[in-house]
Design a protein around this nucleic acid. Structure first.
Lengths: 288, 288
DNA sequence: ATAAAAATGGAATTTATATTCCAAACGCGG
DNA sequence: CCGCGTTTGGAATATAAATTCCATTTTTAT
Protein backbone atom coordinates (compact mmCIF):
# COMPACT_ATOMS: atom_id res chain seq x y z
CA UNK A 1 0.00 0.00 0.00
CA UNK A 2 1.87 3.09 1.20
CA UNK A 3 5.38 2.12 0.36
CA UNK A 4 6.58 5.67 -0.23
CA UNK A 5 5.64 6.80 3.24
CA UNK A 6 8.29 9.02 4.78
CA UNK A 7 7.01 8.18 8.23
CA UNK A 8 8.25 4.76 9.05
CA UNK A 9 5.83 4.26 11.88
CA UNK A 10 4.36 1.18 10.32
CA UNK A 11 4.77 -2.06 12.16
CA UNK A 12 6.62 -3.53 9.28
CA UNK A 13 9.32 -0.94 9.36
CA UNK A 14 10.10 -1.23 13.00
CA UNK A 15 13.29 -3.11 13.48
CA UNK A 16 12.79 -4.12 17.06
CA UNK A 17 12.29 -2.92 20.56
CA UNK A 18 11.30 0.64 19.83
CA UNK A 19 8.41 1.74 21.94
CA UNK A 20 5.26 1.63 19.95
CA UNK A 21 1.68 2.60 20.58
CA UNK A 22 -0.44 -0.27 21.86
CA UNK A 23 -3.14 -1.60 19.53
CA UNK A 24 -6.45 0.13 20.10
CA UNK A 25 -8.69 -2.72 19.03
CA UNK A 26 -8.70 -6.45 18.80
CA UNK A 27 -8.54 -6.22 15.05
CA UNK A 28 -5.54 -3.95 15.19
CA UNK A 29 -3.96 -6.33 17.63
CA UNK A 30 -4.33 -9.33 15.37
CA UNK A 31 -3.24 -7.39 12.34
CA UNK A 32 -0.08 -6.43 14.10
CA UNK A 33 0.34 -9.93 15.40
CA UNK A 34 0.10 -11.29 11.89
CA UNK A 35 2.76 -8.96 10.59
CA UNK A 36 5.08 -9.39 13.56
CA UNK A 37 4.81 -13.04 14.41
CA UNK A 38 7.58 -14.14 12.07
CA UNK A 39 10.09 -11.88 13.66
CA UNK A 40 9.41 -13.15 17.14
CA UNK A 41 11.74 -15.57 18.89
CA UNK A 42 10.68 -19.11 19.49
CA UNK A 43 8.84 -18.94 22.78
CA UNK A 44 7.11 -15.71 21.96
CA UNK A 45 5.93 -17.11 18.65
CA UNK A 46 4.72 -20.17 20.49
CA UNK A 47 2.66 -17.99 22.73
CA UNK A 48 1.48 -15.88 19.80
CA UNK A 49 0.11 -18.99 18.16
CA UNK A 50 -1.60 -20.00 21.34
CA UNK A 51 -3.55 -16.81 21.73
CA UNK A 52 -4.23 -16.63 18.02
CA UNK A 53 -5.93 -19.98 18.44
CA UNK A 54 -7.55 -19.14 21.78
CA UNK A 55 -8.32 -15.45 21.69
CA UNK A 56 -11.31 -15.92 23.94
CA UNK A 57 -9.16 -17.13 26.81
CA UNK A 58 -7.22 -13.91 27.18
CA UNK A 59 -10.02 -11.94 28.77
CA UNK A 60 -10.71 -14.47 31.49
CA UNK A 61 -7.34 -15.95 32.35
CA UNK A 62 -4.35 -15.01 34.42
CA UNK A 63 -0.83 -14.79 33.11
CA UNK A 64 0.00 -18.04 34.80
CA UNK A 65 -2.95 -19.85 33.25
CA UNK A 66 -2.17 -18.64 29.77
CA UNK A 67 1.50 -19.43 30.19
CA UNK A 68 0.53 -22.88 31.30
CA UNK A 69 -1.80 -23.38 28.37
CA UNK A 70 0.81 -22.30 25.86
CA UNK A 71 3.51 -24.19 27.71
CA UNK A 72 5.76 -21.20 28.24
CA UNK A 73 6.99 -19.27 31.25
CA UNK A 74 5.02 -16.34 32.68
CA UNK A 75 7.91 -14.08 31.89
CA UNK A 76 7.61 -15.01 28.24
CA UNK A 77 4.03 -13.83 28.34
CA UNK A 78 5.16 -10.52 29.72
CA UNK A 79 7.79 -10.11 27.07
CA UNK A 80 5.22 -10.90 24.43
CA UNK A 81 2.84 -8.25 25.69
CA UNK A 82 5.58 -5.66 25.69
CA UNK A 83 6.72 -6.71 22.26
CA UNK A 84 3.20 -6.06 21.01
CA UNK A 85 3.32 -2.55 22.34
CA UNK A 86 1.52 -2.92 25.64
CA UNK A 87 3.00 -1.85 28.93
CA UNK A 88 2.29 -5.31 30.26
CA UNK A 89 -0.25 -8.07 30.43
CA UNK A 90 -2.80 -6.06 32.33
CA UNK A 91 -3.06 -3.45 29.63
CA UNK A 92 -3.44 -6.08 26.96
CA UNK A 93 -6.07 -7.91 28.96
CA UNK A 94 -7.99 -4.69 29.36
CA UNK A 95 -8.31 -4.51 25.60
CA UNK A 96 -9.61 -8.05 25.38
CA UNK A 97 -12.01 -7.51 28.22
CA UNK A 98 -13.56 -4.43 26.71
CA UNK A 99 -14.25 -6.43 23.58
CA UNK A 100 -15.56 -9.35 25.54
CA UNK A 101 -19.11 -8.26 26.31
CA UNK A 102 -19.88 -7.77 22.65
CA UNK A 103 -19.49 -11.45 22.10
CA UNK A 104 -22.37 -12.40 24.35
CA UNK A 105 -24.84 -12.92 21.55
CA UNK A 106 -24.32 -16.61 21.18
CA UNK A 107 -24.22 -18.99 18.32
CA UNK A 108 -27.98 -19.40 18.02
CA UNK A 109 -28.75 -15.73 17.66
CA UNK A 110 -25.84 -15.18 15.34
CA UNK A 111 -27.11 -17.88 13.07
CA UNK A 112 -30.61 -16.42 13.12
CA UNK A 113 -29.26 -13.00 12.23
CA UNK A 114 -27.27 -14.38 9.35
CA UNK A 115 -30.37 -16.09 8.06
CA UNK A 116 -32.43 -12.93 8.11
CA UNK A 117 -29.97 -11.17 5.89
CA UNK A 118 -31.20 -13.33 3.07
CA UNK A 119 -29.59 -16.29 1.44
CA UNK A 120 -27.71 -13.99 -0.86
CA UNK A 121 -24.56 -13.42 1.10
CA UNK A 122 -21.74 -15.94 1.30
CA UNK A 123 -21.97 -15.82 5.08
CA UNK A 124 -25.56 -16.96 4.94
CA UNK A 125 -24.54 -19.82 2.73
CA UNK A 126 -21.75 -20.69 5.11
CA UNK A 127 -24.26 -20.69 7.95
CA UNK A 128 -26.36 -23.12 5.94
CA UNK A 129 -23.48 -25.50 5.49
CA UNK A 130 -22.55 -25.24 9.13
CA UNK A 131 -26.07 -26.03 10.18
CA UNK A 132 -26.36 -28.93 7.79
CA UNK A 133 -22.95 -30.20 8.81
CA UNK A 134 -23.96 -30.25 12.43
CA UNK A 135 -27.11 -32.15 11.64
CA UNK A 136 -25.19 -34.66 9.57
CA UNK A 137 -22.70 -35.21 12.34
CA UNK A 138 -25.47 -35.85 14.81
CA UNK A 139 -26.98 -38.36 12.44
CA UNK A 140 -23.69 -40.09 11.96
CA UNK A 141 -23.74 -41.61 15.42
CA UNK A 142 -27.04 -43.29 14.67
CA UNK A 143 -26.39 -44.45 11.12
CA UNK A 144 -23.02 -46.03 11.77
CA UNK A 145 -23.38 -49.44 13.34
CA UNK A 146 -20.76 -49.76 16.11
CA UNK A 147 -20.39 -53.47 15.44
CA UNK A 148 -19.78 -52.93 11.75
CA UNK A 149 -17.30 -50.23 12.63
CA UNK A 150 -15.41 -52.57 14.93
CA UNK A 151 -15.40 -55.25 12.24
CA UNK A 152 -14.08 -52.76 9.74
CA UNK A 153 -11.27 -51.79 12.08
CA UNK A 154 -10.39 -55.44 12.68
CA UNK A 155 -10.30 -56.24 9.00
CA UNK A 156 -8.21 -53.22 8.16
CA UNK A 157 -5.82 -53.75 11.03
CA UNK A 158 -5.24 -57.30 9.83
CA UNK A 159 -4.71 -56.40 6.19
CA UNK A 160 -1.25 -56.37 4.69
CA UNK A 161 -1.95 -53.34 2.57
CA UNK A 162 -4.96 -51.07 2.58
CA UNK A 163 -6.26 -49.81 -0.73
CA UNK A 164 -8.42 -46.76 -0.96
CA UNK A 165 -10.82 -46.22 -3.82
CA UNK A 166 -12.98 -43.18 -4.29
CA UNK A 167 -13.31 -40.51 -6.94
CA UNK A 168 -14.93 -37.17 -7.54
CA UNK A 169 -16.86 -36.12 -4.49
CA UNK A 170 -15.52 -39.07 -2.55
CA UNK A 171 -11.93 -38.20 -3.30
CA UNK A 172 -11.47 -35.80 -0.40
CA UNK A 173 -12.36 -38.68 1.87
CA UNK A 174 -9.90 -41.14 0.41
CA UNK A 175 -7.14 -38.58 0.18
CA UNK A 176 -7.55 -37.75 3.83
CA UNK A 177 -7.44 -41.43 4.67
CA UNK A 178 -4.23 -41.67 2.68
CA UNK A 179 -2.74 -38.80 4.62
CA UNK A 180 -3.70 -40.31 7.96
CA UNK A 181 -2.39 -43.75 7.13
CA UNK A 182 0.88 -42.36 5.88
CA UNK A 183 1.32 -40.38 9.06
CA UNK A 184 0.80 -43.52 11.11
CA UNK A 185 3.05 -45.69 8.97
CA UNK A 186 0.24 -47.91 7.85
CA UNK A 187 0.90 -49.37 4.40
CA UNK A 188 -1.83 -47.92 2.25
CA UNK A 189 -2.31 -47.12 -1.41
CA UNK A 190 -4.50 -44.37 -2.77
CA UNK A 191 -5.95 -45.37 -6.11
CA UNK A 192 -6.23 -41.99 -7.64
CA UNK A 193 -6.93 -42.98 -11.21
CA UNK A 194 -4.06 -40.86 -12.39
CA UNK A 195 -3.09 -41.53 -16.01
CA UNK A 196 -5.95 -44.01 -16.13
CA UNK A 197 -3.66 -46.69 -14.89
CA UNK A 198 -5.56 -49.45 -13.23
CA UNK A 199 -3.67 -50.85 -10.34
CA UNK A 200 -6.22 -53.47 -9.59
CA UNK A 201 -3.77 -56.29 -9.98
CA UNK A 202 -1.87 -54.86 -7.04
CA UNK A 203 -4.65 -55.95 -4.76
CA UNK A 204 -3.78 -59.25 -3.16
CA UNK A 205 -5.90 -61.67 -1.15
CA UNK A 206 -4.55 -60.53 2.21
CA UNK A 207 -5.23 -56.90 1.44
CA UNK A 208 -8.28 -54.86 2.28
CA UNK A 209 -10.07 -52.14 0.36
CA UNK A 210 -11.85 -49.05 1.56
CA UNK A 211 -14.32 -48.06 -1.12
CA UNK A 212 -16.06 -44.72 -0.84
CA UNK A 213 -18.91 -43.69 -3.07
CA UNK A 214 -22.20 -41.86 -2.81
CA UNK A 215 -25.18 -41.65 -5.12
CA UNK A 216 -24.90 -41.22 -8.01
CA UNK A 217 -22.30 -43.91 -7.71
CA UNK A 218 -19.12 -43.63 -9.67
CA UNK A 219 -18.80 -46.50 -12.08
CA UNK A 220 -15.09 -46.90 -11.65
CA UNK A 221 -15.30 -47.28 -7.90
CA UNK A 222 -17.81 -50.11 -8.21
CA UNK A 223 -15.74 -51.79 -10.90
CA UNK A 224 -12.54 -51.70 -8.97
CA UNK A 225 -14.17 -52.87 -5.78
CA UNK A 226 -15.80 -55.75 -7.60
CA UNK A 227 -12.50 -56.87 -9.06
CA UNK A 228 -10.79 -56.54 -5.71
CA UNK A 229 -13.47 -58.68 -4.16
CA UNK A 230 -12.90 -61.28 -6.87
CA UNK A 231 -9.25 -61.50 -5.96
CA UNK A 232 -10.17 -62.22 -2.36
CA UNK A 233 -9.69 -58.93 -0.61
CA UNK A 234 -12.03 -57.70 2.12
CA UNK A 235 -14.07 -54.61 1.36
CA UNK A 236 -15.03 -51.84 3.73
CA UNK A 237 -17.61 -49.57 2.16
CA UNK A 238 -18.27 -45.98 3.17
CA UNK A 239 -21.49 -45.15 1.39
CA UNK A 240 -24.88 -43.58 1.88
CA UNK A 241 -27.58 -46.22 1.84
CA UNK A 242 -27.85 -49.97 2.21
CA UNK A 243 -29.01 -50.32 -1.36
CA UNK A 244 -25.69 -49.03 -2.59
CA UNK A 245 -24.13 -51.24 -5.28
CA UNK A 246 -21.34 -52.01 -2.85
CA UNK A 247 -23.78 -53.99 -0.75
CA UNK A 248 -23.65 -56.86 -3.24
CA UNK A 249 -19.97 -57.40 -2.54
CA UNK A 250 -20.49 -58.61 1.00
CA UNK A 251 -18.73 -55.47 2.05
CA UNK A 252 -18.71 -54.22 5.62
CA UNK A 253 -20.93 -51.20 5.28
CA UNK A 254 -20.50 -47.94 7.11
CA UNK A 255 -23.42 -45.71 6.34
CA UNK A 256 -23.33 -41.93 6.24
CA UNK A 257 -26.35 -39.88 5.39
CA UNK A 258 -25.08 -36.50 4.48
CA UNK A 259 -27.58 -33.71 3.95
CA UNK A 260 -27.42 -31.48 0.90
CA UNK A 261 -27.36 -27.76 0.48
CA UNK A 262 -28.46 -27.37 -3.08
CA UNK A 263 -26.37 -29.67 -5.17
CA UNK A 264 -23.56 -29.94 -2.65
CA UNK A 265 -22.95 -31.40 0.71
CA UNK A 266 -20.50 -30.50 3.42
CA UNK A 267 -18.86 -33.93 3.74
CA UNK A 268 -18.35 -33.29 7.45
CA UNK A 269 -19.82 -36.60 8.52
CA UNK A 270 -17.95 -38.64 5.92
CA UNK A 271 -14.64 -37.07 6.83
CA UNK A 272 -15.23 -37.60 10.52
CA UNK A 273 -16.07 -41.22 9.98
CA UNK A 274 -13.03 -41.69 7.81
CA UNK A 275 -10.59 -40.17 10.23
CA UNK A 276 -12.03 -42.05 13.19
CA UNK A 277 -11.69 -45.24 11.19
CA UNK A 278 -8.12 -44.48 10.23
CA UNK A 279 -7.01 -43.59 13.73
CA UNK A 280 -8.63 -46.69 15.17
CA UNK A 281 -6.88 -48.85 12.63
CA UNK A 282 -3.57 -47.16 13.31
CA UNK A 283 -3.98 -47.63 17.05
CA UNK A 284 -4.92 -51.26 16.72
CA UNK A 285 -2.02 -52.02 14.43
CA UNK A 286 0.53 -50.47 16.69
CA UNK A 287 -0.91 -52.23 19.68
CA UNK A 288 -0.05 -55.62 18.25
CA UNK B 1 -30.33 -37.61 48.43
CA UNK B 2 -30.40 -37.15 52.21
CA UNK B 3 -33.90 -38.33 52.97
CA UNK B 4 -33.18 -38.98 56.63
CA UNK B 5 -32.79 -35.32 57.31
CA UNK B 6 -35.80 -33.72 58.94
CA UNK B 7 -34.52 -30.34 57.78
CA UNK B 8 -35.18 -29.93 54.11
CA UNK B 9 -32.16 -27.97 53.01
CA UNK B 10 -33.80 -26.37 50.03
CA UNK B 11 -32.92 -22.82 49.18
CA UNK B 12 -36.44 -21.67 49.85
CA UNK B 13 -36.46 -22.87 53.41
CA UNK B 14 -33.19 -21.40 54.42
CA UNK B 15 -33.77 -18.38 56.53
CA UNK B 16 -30.27 -17.06 56.43
CA UNK B 17 -26.63 -17.77 56.73
CA UNK B 18 -26.65 -21.55 56.69
CA UNK B 19 -23.93 -22.93 54.48
CA UNK B 20 -25.27 -24.08 51.18
CA UNK B 21 -23.78 -25.69 48.11
CA UNK B 22 -22.70 -23.18 45.45
CA UNK B 23 -24.61 -23.17 42.14
CA UNK B 24 -22.97 -25.39 39.56
CA UNK B 25 -24.07 -23.48 36.48
CA UNK B 26 -25.08 -20.03 35.44
CA UNK B 27 -28.64 -21.24 35.05
CA UNK B 28 -28.70 -22.62 38.56
CA UNK B 29 -27.25 -19.37 39.76
CA UNK B 30 -29.96 -17.23 38.24
CA UNK B 31 -32.65 -19.60 39.36
CA UNK B 32 -31.47 -19.30 42.91
CA UNK B 33 -31.08 -15.58 42.52
CA UNK B 34 -34.67 -15.28 41.41
CA UNK B 35 -35.97 -17.18 44.39
CA UNK B 36 -33.76 -15.40 46.89
CA UNK B 37 -33.67 -11.83 45.70
CA UNK B 38 -36.73 -10.68 47.63
CA UNK B 39 -35.34 -11.80 50.94
CA UNK B 40 -32.09 -9.92 50.49
CA UNK B 41 -31.40 -6.66 52.31
CA UNK B 42 -31.36 -3.42 50.42
CA UNK B 43 -27.76 -3.18 49.22
CA UNK B 44 -27.51 -6.83 48.34
CA UNK B 45 -30.68 -6.64 46.32
CA UNK B 46 -29.30 -3.59 44.61
CA UNK B 47 -26.26 -5.56 43.61
CA UNK B 48 -28.36 -8.55 42.58
CA UNK B 49 -30.26 -6.35 40.18
CA UNK B 50 -27.05 -5.03 38.78
CA UNK B 51 -25.60 -8.39 37.85
CA UNK B 52 -28.96 -9.62 36.62
CA UNK B 53 -28.79 -6.74 34.16
CA UNK B 54 -25.08 -7.15 33.38
CA UNK B 55 -24.27 -10.83 33.62
CA UNK B 56 -21.51 -10.52 31.04
CA UNK B 57 -19.54 -8.18 33.24
CA UNK B 58 -18.99 -10.64 36.06
CA UNK B 59 -16.38 -12.72 34.26
CA UNK B 60 -14.16 -9.79 33.36
CA UNK B 61 -14.41 -7.38 36.24
CA UNK B 62 -12.91 -7.01 39.68
CA UNK B 63 -14.91 -6.74 42.86
CA UNK B 64 -14.15 -3.05 43.02
CA UNK B 65 -15.36 -2.44 39.47
CA UNK B 66 -18.60 -4.30 40.00
CA UNK B 67 -19.16 -2.58 43.30
CA UNK B 68 -18.61 0.72 41.61
CA UNK B 69 -20.97 -0.11 38.79
CA UNK B 70 -23.72 -1.17 41.17
CA UNK B 71 -22.93 1.72 43.48
CA UNK B 72 -22.32 -0.42 46.53
CA UNK B 73 -19.32 -1.20 48.70
CA UNK B 74 -16.94 -4.04 47.88
CA UNK B 75 -17.85 -5.70 51.13
CA UNK B 76 -21.47 -5.81 50.01
CA UNK B 77 -20.34 -7.74 46.95
CA UNK B 78 -18.58 -10.20 49.18
CA UNK B 79 -21.62 -10.68 51.36
CA UNK B 80 -23.74 -11.20 48.28
CA UNK B 81 -21.47 -13.93 46.97
CA UNK B 82 -21.52 -15.72 50.28
CA UNK B 83 -25.26 -15.34 50.53
CA UNK B 84 -25.55 -17.10 47.18
CA UNK B 85 -23.56 -20.03 48.48
CA UNK B 86 -20.12 -19.25 47.18
CA UNK B 87 -17.10 -19.08 49.40
CA UNK B 88 -16.36 -15.66 47.95
CA UNK B 89 -16.24 -13.61 44.84
CA UNK B 90 -13.43 -15.60 43.26
CA UNK B 91 -15.44 -18.79 43.32
CA UNK B 92 -18.42 -17.10 41.78
CA UNK B 93 -16.31 -15.50 39.10
CA UNK B 94 -14.82 -18.87 38.28
CA UNK B 95 -18.29 -20.12 37.45
CA UNK B 96 -18.97 -17.21 35.13
CA UNK B 97 -15.62 -17.59 33.45
CA UNK B 98 -15.84 -21.28 32.85
CA UNK B 99 -19.32 -20.91 31.47
CA UNK B 100 -18.09 -18.42 28.92
CA UNK B 101 -15.36 -20.62 27.59
CA UNK B 102 -17.83 -23.48 27.63
CA UNK B 103 -18.35 -22.51 24.03
CA UNK B 104 -14.86 -23.69 23.49
CA UNK B 105 -14.33 -26.09 26.33
CA UNK B 106 -11.01 -27.34 27.32
CA UNK B 107 -10.85 -30.22 24.93
CA UNK B 108 -7.20 -30.84 25.51
CA UNK B 109 -7.72 -31.96 29.07
CA UNK B 110 -11.04 -33.59 28.34
CA UNK B 111 -9.51 -35.76 25.66
CA UNK B 112 -6.57 -36.58 27.85
CA UNK B 113 -8.97 -37.83 30.49
CA UNK B 114 -10.90 -39.85 27.98
CA UNK B 115 -7.75 -41.51 26.84
CA UNK B 116 -6.76 -42.41 30.36
CA UNK B 117 -10.10 -44.05 30.83
CA UNK B 118 -9.04 -46.31 28.00
CA UNK B 119 -12.12 -45.60 25.92
CA UNK B 120 -10.40 -46.70 22.78
CA UNK B 121 -13.29 -48.35 21.04
CA UNK B 122 -13.75 -47.08 17.51
CA UNK B 123 -17.26 -45.85 18.31
CA UNK B 124 -15.97 -43.80 21.21
CA UNK B 125 -13.36 -42.29 18.97
CA UNK B 126 -15.98 -41.55 16.37
CA UNK B 127 -18.08 -39.85 19.00
CA UNK B 128 -15.09 -37.71 19.88
CA UNK B 129 -14.58 -36.62 16.31
CA UNK B 130 -18.25 -35.84 15.98
CA UNK B 131 -18.19 -33.77 19.12
CA UNK B 132 -15.09 -31.90 18.14
CA UNK B 133 -16.43 -31.39 14.64
CA UNK B 134 -19.57 -29.82 16.00
CA UNK B 135 -17.60 -27.45 18.17
CA UNK B 136 -15.36 -26.51 15.28
CA UNK B 137 -18.34 -25.79 13.08
CA UNK B 138 -19.89 -23.56 15.68
CA UNK B 139 -16.68 -21.67 15.99
CA UNK B 140 -16.37 -21.29 12.27
CA UNK B 141 -19.09 -18.67 12.27
CA UNK B 142 -17.11 -16.57 14.68
CA UNK B 143 -13.65 -16.97 13.20
CA UNK B 144 -14.58 -16.30 9.59
CA UNK B 145 -14.97 -12.62 8.96
CA UNK B 146 -18.05 -12.10 6.74
CA UNK B 147 -16.42 -9.15 5.03
CA UNK B 148 -13.30 -11.09 4.21
CA UNK B 149 -15.47 -13.90 2.93
CA UNK B 150 -17.35 -11.54 0.65
CA UNK B 151 -14.07 -10.11 -0.60
CA UNK B 152 -12.79 -13.58 -1.28
CA UNK B 153 -15.88 -14.41 -3.30
CA UNK B 154 -15.57 -11.19 -5.29
CA UNK B 155 -11.94 -11.79 -6.08
CA UNK B 156 -12.51 -15.37 -7.10
CA UNK B 157 -15.56 -14.56 -9.18
CA UNK B 158 -13.56 -11.98 -11.06
CA UNK B 159 -10.55 -14.20 -11.70
CA UNK B 160 -9.94 -15.73 -15.08
CA UNK B 161 -8.70 -18.97 -13.68
CA UNK B 162 -8.72 -20.15 -10.08
CA UNK B 163 -5.71 -22.06 -8.83
CA UNK B 164 -5.91 -24.26 -5.80
CA UNK B 165 -2.88 -25.07 -3.72
CA UNK B 166 -2.84 -27.34 -0.71
CA UNK B 167 -1.09 -30.55 0.18
CA UNK B 168 -1.11 -33.26 2.78
CA UNK B 169 -3.83 -32.59 5.32
CA UNK B 170 -5.08 -29.67 3.26
CA UNK B 171 -5.43 -31.73 0.12
CA UNK B 172 -8.93 -32.99 0.87
CA UNK B 173 -10.00 -29.37 0.97
CA UNK B 174 -8.48 -28.39 -2.33
CA UNK B 175 -9.62 -31.54 -4.05
CA UNK B 176 -13.17 -30.90 -2.95
CA UNK B 177 -12.90 -27.35 -4.22
CA UNK B 178 -11.71 -28.75 -7.52
CA UNK B 179 -14.68 -31.07 -7.70
CA UNK B 180 -17.13 -28.29 -6.92
CA UNK B 181 -15.65 -25.87 -9.41
CA UNK B 182 -15.61 -28.46 -12.12
CA UNK B 183 -19.24 -29.24 -11.50
CA UNK B 184 -20.12 -25.58 -11.84
CA UNK B 185 -18.00 -25.04 -14.93
CA UNK B 186 -15.68 -22.63 -13.21
CA UNK B 187 -12.21 -22.71 -14.75
CA UNK B 188 -10.03 -23.97 -11.96
CA UNK B 189 -6.74 -25.83 -11.68
CA UNK B 190 -5.80 -28.13 -8.86
CA UNK B 191 -2.08 -27.98 -8.26
CA UNK B 192 -1.59 -31.47 -7.02
CA UNK B 193 2.17 -31.64 -7.13
CA UNK B 194 1.98 -34.77 -9.24
CA UNK B 195 5.26 -35.64 -10.88
CA UNK B 196 6.78 -32.69 -9.10
CA UNK B 197 5.82 -30.50 -11.99
CA UNK B 198 5.61 -26.93 -10.96
CA UNK B 199 2.86 -25.19 -12.76
CA UNK B 200 3.55 -21.87 -11.20
CA UNK B 201 4.21 -20.19 -14.50
CA UNK B 202 0.61 -20.99 -15.40
CA UNK B 203 -0.54 -18.44 -12.91
CA UNK B 204 -1.27 -15.18 -14.67
CA UNK B 205 -1.93 -11.72 -13.25
CA UNK B 206 -5.70 -11.95 -13.72
CA UNK B 207 -5.88 -15.26 -11.95
CA UNK B 208 -6.57 -15.94 -8.31
CA UNK B 209 -5.18 -18.52 -5.95
CA UNK B 210 -6.80 -20.37 -3.09
CA UNK B 211 -4.05 -21.49 -0.75
CA UNK B 212 -4.90 -23.89 2.04
CA UNK B 213 -2.47 -24.79 4.78
CA UNK B 214 -2.53 -25.41 8.50
CA UNK B 215 0.20 -25.56 11.08
CA UNK B 216 2.72 -27.06 10.63
CA UNK B 217 2.63 -25.24 7.34
CA UNK B 218 3.65 -27.07 4.22
CA UNK B 219 6.66 -25.42 2.68
CA UNK B 220 5.56 -25.96 -0.89
CA UNK B 221 2.23 -24.26 -0.37
CA UNK B 222 3.90 -21.15 0.99
CA UNK B 223 6.43 -21.17 -1.83
CA UNK B 224 3.87 -21.48 -4.56
CA UNK B 225 1.61 -18.87 -3.06
CA UNK B 226 4.52 -16.48 -2.75
CA UNK B 227 5.45 -16.92 -6.37
CA UNK B 228 1.85 -16.53 -7.45
CA UNK B 229 1.65 -13.33 -5.49
CA UNK B 230 4.79 -12.10 -7.20
CA UNK B 231 3.21 -12.63 -10.59
CA UNK B 232 0.31 -10.46 -9.56
CA UNK B 233 -2.41 -12.93 -8.68
CA UNK B 234 -4.76 -12.40 -5.78
CA UNK B 235 -4.50 -14.85 -2.92
CA UNK B 236 -7.29 -16.22 -0.79
CA UNK B 237 -5.90 -18.07 2.20
CA UNK B 238 -7.73 -20.73 4.14
CA UNK B 239 -5.60 -21.20 7.21
CA UNK B 240 -5.78 -21.53 10.95
CA UNK B 241 -4.40 -18.42 12.60
CA UNK B 242 -3.46 -14.91 11.68
CA UNK B 243 0.16 -15.73 12.36
CA UNK B 244 0.14 -18.07 9.41
CA UNK B 245 2.93 -17.43 6.90
CA UNK B 246 0.26 -16.65 4.33
CA UNK B 247 -0.50 -13.46 6.20
CA UNK B 248 2.60 -11.85 4.75
CA UNK B 249 1.26 -12.11 1.23
CA UNK B 250 -1.52 -9.61 1.77
CA UNK B 251 -3.85 -12.53 1.24
CA UNK B 252 -7.52 -12.38 2.05
CA UNK B 253 -7.57 -14.58 5.10
CA UNK B 254 -10.34 -16.96 6.03
CA UNK B 255 -9.60 -18.39 9.42
CA UNK B 256 -10.64 -21.82 10.59
CA UNK B 257 -9.58 -23.05 13.95
CA UNK B 258 -10.14 -26.73 13.94
CA UNK B 259 -9.80 -28.70 17.15
CA UNK B 260 -7.61 -31.76 17.30
CA UNK B 261 -8.34 -35.23 18.48
CA UNK B 262 -4.89 -36.50 19.20
CA UNK B 263 -2.79 -35.74 16.17
CA UNK B 264 -5.72 -35.48 13.79
CA UNK B 265 -8.60 -33.18 13.14
CA UNK B 266 -11.95 -33.76 11.56
CA UNK B 267 -11.62 -31.08 8.88
CA UNK B 268 -15.36 -30.49 9.09
CA UNK B 269 -15.05 -26.76 9.44
CA UNK B 270 -12.47 -26.39 6.71
CA UNK B 271 -14.54 -28.42 4.27
CA UNK B 272 -17.68 -26.48 5.08
CA UNK B 273 -15.93 -23.20 4.54
CA UNK B 274 -14.46 -24.42 1.28
CA UNK B 275 -17.72 -25.62 -0.18
CA UNK B 276 -19.57 -22.48 0.87
CA UNK B 277 -16.87 -20.44 -0.78
CA UNK B 278 -17.01 -22.49 -3.97
CA UNK B 279 -20.77 -22.37 -4.26
CA UNK B 280 -20.83 -18.63 -3.65
CA UNK B 281 -18.23 -18.10 -6.33
CA UNK B 282 -20.13 -20.30 -8.75
CA UNK B 283 -23.36 -18.44 -8.09
CA UNK B 284 -21.78 -15.05 -8.51
CA UNK B 285 -20.09 -16.00 -11.75
CA UNK B 286 -23.24 -17.29 -13.30
CA UNK B 287 -25.14 -14.25 -12.20
CA UNK B 288 -23.03 -12.00 -14.37
C1' DA C 1 35.93 -22.43 17.64
C1' DT C 2 35.05 -18.46 20.30
C1' DA C 3 33.05 -14.35 21.82
C1' DA C 4 29.08 -11.43 21.86
C1' DA C 5 24.19 -10.94 21.76
C1' DA C 6 19.69 -12.65 22.38
C1' DA C 7 16.52 -15.42 24.52
C1' DT C 8 14.95 -18.16 28.24
C1' DG C 9 13.43 -20.02 32.86
C1' DG C 10 12.71 -19.35 37.40
C1' DA C 11 12.86 -16.87 41.62
C1' DA C 12 12.23 -12.30 43.97
C1' DT C 13 9.63 -8.30 44.25
C1' DT C 14 5.96 -5.22 43.67
C1' DT C 15 1.39 -4.25 42.85
C1' DA C 16 -3.42 -5.24 42.65
C1' DT C 17 -7.22 -7.61 44.36
C1' DA C 18 -10.06 -10.32 47.37
C1' DT C 19 -11.41 -10.96 51.86
C1' DT C 20 -12.11 -10.04 56.73
C1' DC C 21 -13.09 -7.20 60.53
C1' DC C 22 -15.24 -3.82 63.26
C1' DA C 23 -17.29 0.48 64.49
C1' DA C 24 -21.11 3.24 63.12
C1' DA C 25 -25.84 3.61 61.23
C1' DC C 26 -30.17 1.78 60.68
C1' DG C 27 -34.66 -0.31 61.52
C1' DC C 28 -37.75 -2.48 64.60
C1' DG C 29 -40.42 -4.04 68.71
C1' DG C 30 -41.05 -2.72 73.20
C1' DC D 1 -37.54 6.95 73.22
C1' DC D 2 -34.54 3.01 74.19
C1' DG D 3 -32.17 -1.24 73.52
C1' DC D 4 -31.08 -5.04 70.34
C1' DG D 5 -30.27 -7.42 66.20
C1' DT D 6 -29.22 -6.44 61.40
C1' DT D 7 -27.04 -4.03 57.91
C1' DT D 8 -23.68 -1.00 56.16
C1' DG D 9 -19.31 1.51 54.95
C1' DG D 10 -14.69 1.73 55.08
C1' DA D 11 -10.26 0.60 56.66
C1' DA D 12 -6.96 -3.32 57.64
C1' DT D 13 -5.18 -7.60 56.29
C1' DA D 14 -4.29 -11.68 53.59
C1' DT D 15 -3.86 -13.60 49.24
C1' DA D 16 -3.00 -13.87 44.56
C1' DA D 17 -1.44 -11.99 40.59
C1' DA D 18 1.62 -9.12 37.59
C1' DT D 19 6.02 -7.55 36.80
C1' DT D 20 10.98 -7.25 37.16
C1' DC D 21 15.47 -9.10 37.63
C1' DC D 22 19.28 -11.99 36.88
C1' DA D 23 21.83 -16.27 36.18
C1' DT D 24 21.90 -19.81 32.62
C1' DT D 25 21.27 -21.46 28.07
C1' DT D 26 20.91 -20.91 23.23
C1' DT D 27 21.73 -18.59 19.01
C1' DT D 28 24.35 -15.69 15.94
C1' DA D 29 28.29 -13.60 13.96
C1' DT D 30 33.21 -13.66 13.40
Amino acid sequence: MNDASPHPDQDANLASAEMLAPPQSIDAFFTRLGSTADRLPKRLKQFANYIAANPDKVAVSTVAELADGADVQPSAVMRFCQEMGFSGFSQMQKLFRSDYSQKWPDYATRLAKLREHGTESPSALLAEFVEVGRASLENLLTTVDPIALQQAVDVLARAETIHMIGFRRAFPVTSYLAYAFEKMDVPAVLHSGIANINMEHLIRPNDAVIAVTFAPYTEMTIDMATKARASGADIVAITDVVTSPLARLKAIQLLVSELDVGAFRALSASLSLAIALAVSVGAQRNRI
